[in-house]
Structure formats: C-alpha cells, structure tokens
Design a protein around this nucleic acid. Sequence first.
DNA 1: GTAAAATAGTTGCAGCTTAAAATATCGGAT
DNA 2: ATCCGATATTTTAAGCTGCAACTATTTTAC
Lengths: 182, 182
Amino acid sequence: MKQNGTAVHADLQFSDHVDAESKVAERPEDHKTELRLWLRMLACANLIEVEIRQRLRERFDTTLPRFDLMAQLERTEDGLLLGELSRRMMVSNGNVTGLVERLVHSGLIERNANEADRRAVRVRLTDEGRRVFSVMAAEHADWIAEFFDGLGEDEQEALLTSLRGLKLSVLSAISGRADRKV
Amino acid sequence: MKQNGTAVHADLQFSDHVDAESKVAERPEDHKTELRLWLRMLACANLIEVEIRQRLRERFDTTLPRFDLMAQLERTEDGLLLGELSRRMMVSNGNVTGLVERLVHSGLIERNANEADRRAVRVRLTDEGRRVFSVMAAEHADWIAEFFDGLGEDEQEALLTSLRGLKLSVLSAISGRADRKV
DNA sequence: GTAAAATAGTTGCAGCTTAAAATATCGGAT
DNA sequence: ATCCGATATTTTAAGCTGCAACTATTTTAC
C-alpha cells in the first residue's frame, strides 16, 4: 500500500545490468523497434490467450490454469508432487494448492498421501479427469491450428526460428537474476 | 462451482467454426507445428512479462496493470473517460474501477466529475503521476531493448513481419465471435 | 412529457496470482 | 537422542480479473 512516487528513488540493485543500461543510455530514444516488436508480440499472444480462456470457459466451463495443470499431469504416469507441479507450471506453491483443491473438488484429479515422505503430496488425474482432458486437449489443438491457419508453412518455420533466437536473447538478458538456482 | 466433467457435453455453439474444425478433423494429429509455435511464443512472452512485472515491483513498487493504465493516460492531454480507458486497455469496466481507485489513492492520477454528463468520470495523470511515469517508461524501454538485444537488426525485422502476419491470421480466425460490435 | 432503451460506472462474487510467514517433516551432525 | 537446517506444503494478505447484477443518468421513441 505504498505506491507513492518516492519509491522511484529506490536503490538501483541490478549491478549486473549496468552495462546494458548504460549502453542504451548513450543513445536515448532509440528503442523504438524493440518496443514495437514487444508490443506486437504481446498483442498477438494476448489475443490468442484471451480467446482460449473464453472458449475453455464456454465449451468446458473451466479455466486456462486448470487446463495447464491437467496438461502437466497428463504427461505423467503416476502424477506429480505439488512442488514438481509448481516448478513445471512456473507458478508459486500457494497457487498450486488452490488450483489442486478446486480440481479435486471437481473430481478431475486426486491427492494421494506419500507414505515415504509425509510432507509430500502426489496428485494425479482421475480416470474421469483423463477422459475429460483428452477431449479438451484435442479441441484446444484445433483452436491453435485455426489461429495459425493464415500463416504459410514457411512463415511458420520462420517464426519458429525467430522465436528460438528471442528466447535465447531473453534468457541471456535475464540470467543472473531470478535464476539463482543456476 | 460446477467444474464437473459433464460440462464437456455442453452444446457446441460455434457454427461459424464448423468448417475449420471439420477441416482439421480430417487429418488428426497434424497440429504439431502450430502447437509448438504457440507454446514457444507463449514461453517467450511470459518470460518477458514476468520479468517486467518483477522489475516494476522491485524498482518502482508498482504493477503492470497500473503501468499500463498510466501509459494510456500519458498519451492524452486531458485524460480519458473510464469507458474509453477500459476499451483501450482491453479489460473490463469493473477492473478499471479498482485500478483507478488504487492509483488515485497513491496520488498518481485524479478523478474529475464531468459536468456535461453526470454519469461519466474523467481520469488524468497528476503532475506527480506524469513525472513518475516518465521515469518508469524510460527504464521500461531500456529493459525491452535489453531483452531483444541478442536479436540482430534483420532478425527483428523478420519477427516484426511474421507477427504482423500472425495477428492478421488470428483476427480472421476470431472474427465473428466476441466482435459483436463490428 | 413520459416510458423504454441505451450508456457510464460500481459492486459482489469467484477465481487466479504472488510474496511472505507459518507448519510439518525429514535428514544429517553432534 | 537431539538439535538444526533443508524441504514440502499451507496459510494469509493484497491485488488483478471477468461476469453478472445493479444504480444512475442520458437519449430515444411515442
């Protein structure tokens, strides 16, 4: 609750980034291409994501986070521990707790105590959950194909390649922060 | 609270899409490229977005939605009506109400009654808000440039072009739904 | 002029999200 | 045997988000 302007003067604490920042500072007002690129990518991703959320709700009365969680479980034989799940979904632990609770309530997944380690909880799809997910996943894939239908084969390949480069670029820009585990 | 599996059997209600869906249904298991493309794009966008959210919080003790709202206001001389704001931000009315409330509380924007139409509320940046935003925006642009730094000039152009194509493809796939106003 | 429809915002509710603090358990060192 | 640090999960507080129902005001139709 302290969103006042003085926070602007908080200490700069990313010494790792001083190089990049001072470099760009030399020629201010020159980030236009990158900014346009980012905004356009964000617009595309949001357009698709919003549409998927809407369709998941209307067609299956579910949400994208639930779908993502089930997608992770679907790839496993015996389910996952909550920690592993939260790592793969790249969301916080507390987030998973709530999602799991609601999905269990819906009967789509089940929580199993782990006898070896009483702290851990393993979750897996129920038969019903697996059945439901396969229907949703098939339709989801169709939606995606539909969205990309206007792009030619070669354009898709080009985009795939560009995105690989972008991912590497972003990862290298970010490394040194948030990736303490590396 | 009705996320049970039976919802899967809800009526199919997108007759507009039957063509696209039946078309892909003819060759099931062939959406792999599109799916990979989508997942990679989502990964990139999320990576960047999460990093931006984190930096906005750590550097300026603020959030992306607040930043976006201020960015919209910054482009205007006399502020915007709430409805116009929610349309430009592509979020719901109720959402804007809360965001505005918190930003007013922080002293960054102000609400002004509209004498011509007593239903309407106009919001604009305060002097403080404009000052704070200019600092944040400059740093934000530096961050973006940093993330895209690993991409060459030509690669950026290629990506920009691919994304234009994608946006058109998605819009054409979506049109007929959600765009009732057209 | 008045009723009905349209428009501008707000409110309530449910869910998603994170960070930080709390709880419980495990494993190793003494 | 016990204490301590690491690990697994839950809880809590604050905020973001959409939808649906609601209030207030303006405009339109008659």
